[in-house]
């Protein structure tokens, strides 16, 4: 199961890198979103998938699944949510100011 998820992470990262390298701003933002999903899955896998019972002290068995990765992911999701929201607003604002969402066309504003 861990191997499968790791492969899935690889596929997601591939897609994200493809999107990040494109010139369209929205695609880049989608790329960062997919990239963060991939890393969340990876953190989950690194902690080990379902190795024991529910991590409650009253639980029946002696072995529990590690709950820490889920806490980490929850934090990371909130952060990536905030950053993605900010990026989307920024892209919209930039589009309104410059009239373009093509990253190539935005080069050289410094020289105006």
């Amino acid at each position: 199961m861990e191997t499968l998820i790791t492969l899935l992470v690889g596929v997601l990262v591939t897609i994200a890198v493809y999107l990040l390298l494109s010139k369209n701003m929205i695609r880049v933002i989608l790329g960062t979103a997919i990239l963060s999903h991939a890393i969340h899955l990876l953190i989950l896998t690194m902690g080990g998938l379902k190795k024991g019972g529910v991590p409650l002290i009253q639980g029946e068995s002696g072995s529990y699944t590690d709950a820490l990765p889920q806490a980490l992911i929850l934090t990371a999701i909130v952060i990536s949510f905030a950053v993605t929201a900010f990026l989307l607003v920024l892209a919209y604002r930039t589009y309104k100011e410059t009239g373009s969402d093509n990253l190539d066309a935005l080069r050289g504003v410094n020289d105006e």
Binding site: L20, M25, V28, T32, L35, S36, I39, L42, I43, A76, I79, V83, F86, L87, L90, A91, R93, T94, E97, T98, L103, L106, V109, N110, E112
Partner: peptide
């Protein structure tokens, strides 16, 4: 305009480095 264009670069590079941090 300069701020908007520069901040897109700045944020993208930092999102990427945060990703490496999580990795």
């Amino acid at each position: 305009k300069v701020q908007l264009v520069e901040s897109i670069k700045y944020i993208s590079i930092n999102v990427l480095s945060s990703w490496f941090f999580l990795l």
